[in-house]
Every structure is written in C-alpha cells, then in structure tokens.
C-alpha cells in the first residue's frame, strides 16, 4: 500500500452527490435484473412470433367458404326451429320456450368460421394489453424484490448508511427508484405491444375501422396497465424490504397467490373483491371487473340451487384496495427500517 495523498477535494458539506442517481446506477448494473429484462424481451419476441402464426388475413376464397358455411348453419337452425314449432308432441303452450327464440343472425360472425382469423384492433389490442400489464406486474414484482433483497443479503444497505445516515431518505429514494423501474417496465411493455399490434394489424389484421372512443378507452386501459406494473414492483420491493430477503419475498408472494387466494376464493367467496389478483384485474380492465359472488342456497320445492350476484369492482375501487395494501406494506417496512438496529 502506498501513502495516502491528501490534496484539495471538496469539503463534505459542498460535495454534490446524488443518492438517486447512484441508486439508478445500482439497479441498472444488477446482473440478475439485466437477465430478467433480457428474458422478458426474448419472451415477448417469441410470443409475438407465435401471434403471427395464430392470425391470418383471409383470402377471398377462405372468406367465401366461411360465408357459405355460416349461411348453411343459419339455414339449418331456422329449419330446426320450424320443425320444432310444428311438432305436435310438444304442448302448444310450451313450444315457444322449448324451440327457443327466433334466430338472431347478428350472433353469427363470419370470423368464427375461419380457422385463422385476422387480428383485430378492437378485440385483440386491449386483450393483449391486459396480458402485458399482468406480465410486467409480475416481472416488476421480481425486480422490486431482488433490487432491495440483494441489498439486505449483501448488507450493502448497511454500507450505504455509512454515507447517507438518514434512513428515511435512503428508503424513500429506493422506493422512488422502484416506482420509476415499475413505470419504465410498464411503459416499455405497453409500447412494445402497441408496436407489435401495429405490425400484426398491417400484415395479419382486419381492416375494419375501430369504433369512436376506442383509442381513448385503450389509452386509459394501457395507462392503468402501467400503474399495475408500478404496483407489482412496489409489492415485491415492500415485501423484500420487510422480510429482508429476495427468496423469502418471492416465496411469500407465491404462497399468497397460489394458496391463500385460492383458499379464500373457495371458502370465503365474499372476499374476492378484496383479493390482490381481483383488485389488479379490476384496476386495469376497461369498466372494472365483473365478479359473480355466491349467495344463499335456495330450495323452492324443485331442488336447491345457489344464487349468484354479479358484482362490478370498478377501476377506482380496485386501485384503492391495492393502494391500501401497499401503504400498509411500505409503511411497516419503513417503520422497521427506521427503528431496527442494523448489524
């Protein structure tokens, strides 16, 4: 070792360091996070290629064949109904009920008669966006957990406190970086899907015009999808900060989603609107999430049956439920981080 040189450097008070910039650098430099993002990108490319094989712009011959089969089905259905209505073995007063209502031709869609239907913006873009929101939320959960979990495993968070002793500031900055990471994931995921959809609609899509208001509804859903990615990242971050270990946080997350939620859905159906998965769905889906909540079992002499009540969990309610859980999780982790002795 050589003698330590001493020369003019900025006094500690005037040094202009940035914990935020440093935390961003730490996050970006983590090999495991780079690996996760890389795998996610590969997965996206693979799924996009699969999507290309599942959709097809129909040729005129295919369309004509589908139209012919559609018309054949309509004719068969009308024929069946007429025969049914003429069947004297059925009491006259019951025939309407037994033979069903008159045929609604709008229920027959030509796309259903094509093996590989074309990609449509109105149906497939929002559906894919929901999938991207769920995927980025899960990816965010793992990234958020490993981001702070690794700091606890290596105890580098303790080393950081030799440089910035204000624990609230340290955890606040880390939470901010987790929010930013989640938002970046969500935005990039939604943009990638939008780009892939653009290619799909041009090469494998239907040229049907989108209805009025479609793009504003879709933007809202995609925005809420980004929000879900942030929520997922914060859940992973908050859980790992609480249990101080990435693996334990992932284990708790798996146990909750695989066991606790399934058990609650089965044994306490009324808890569904309060579950994380349902709340996440309610947050993102356009118009909220429709749930059928099990009611009382009724027996009116013709056998017992269970009544189900449809319940709409709105976007706002889903978001507020998730926010409440997050608040408790982050507050508990922050309180413990501030109070605990660190070794």
């Amino acid at each position: 070792m050589t003698a330590p040189p001493r020369h003019a450097v900025a006094e500690p008070e005037t040094r202009n360091g940035s914990l935020f910039r440093t935390e961003i650098a730490r996050l970006r430099a983590r090999r495991f996070i780079q690996l996760l993002v890389g795998l996610a990108l590969i997965g996206f490319v693979v799924l996009s290629i699969v999507a290309f094989t599942q959709f097809s712009e129909p040729t005129p011959d295919v369309l004509a064949d589908a139209q012919a089969r559609l018309e054949q089905d309509i004719a068969l259905s009308e024929q069946f109904r007429e025969q049914c209505l003429a069947d004297e073995s059925i009491p006259e007063e019951e025939r309407e009920f037994a033979c069903g209502p008159p045929l609604d031709e709008q229920g027959f869609v030509v796309e259903n008669y094509i093996d590989k239907r074309p990609f449509t913006l109105t149906d497939d873009l929002p559906a894919g966006s929901l999938g991207v929101a769920a995927a980025t939320a899960m990816l965010g959960f793992v990234i958020g957990a490993t981001y702070v979990g690794a700091e606890w495993s290596t105890r580098s968070i303790v080393a950081l406190l030799f440089w910035e002793t204000r624990r609230l500031k340290v955890i606040g900055v880390k939470t901010g970086v987790a929010v930013l990471a989640g938002a970046a994931l969500g935005v990039v995921g939604q943009l990638l899907w939008l780009g892939a959809s653009h290619v799909l609609v041009r090469t494998r899509g239907s040229t049907t015009a989108v209805p009025d208001g479609f793009w504003s509804d879709f933007s809202g859903q995609a925005g809420r999808g980004v929000l879900l990615a942030v929520v997922g990242t914060l859940f992973g971050f908050g859980l790992a900060n609480l249990v101080r270990n990435t693996g334990a946080a992932l284990g708790v997350g798996f146990a909750y989603f695989a066991i606790v939620e399934s058990a609650l859905r089965g044994f306490v159906p009324k808890s569904q609107p309060f579950l994380v998965s349902e709340s996440a769905g309610a947050l993102v889906e356009d118009g909220g999430l429709s749930l059928f909540v099990e009611g009382p079992t009724v027996d009116q002499g013709t056998g017992s049956f269970t009544e189900f009540t449809e319940m709409i969990v709105s976007n706002v309610r889903g978001g507020l439920t998730l926010a409440a859980y997050l608040l408790v999780l982050l507050a508990a982790g922050t309180w413990l981080f501030r109070r605990r002795d660190l070794h």
Partner: peptide, 14 residues
C-alpha cells in the same frame, strides 16, 4: 471499482 464508484456517487466523490 464499480462498488467504490457507486459509494463515491452518493457523496459526490470524484
């Protein structure tokens, strides 16, 4: 080096 640079970044050390 990267470990040191990350710490240095917190306090603005060159």
């Amino acid at each position: 080096r990267r470990n040191l640079r990350l710490l240095a970044g917190v306090a603005g050390v060159s």
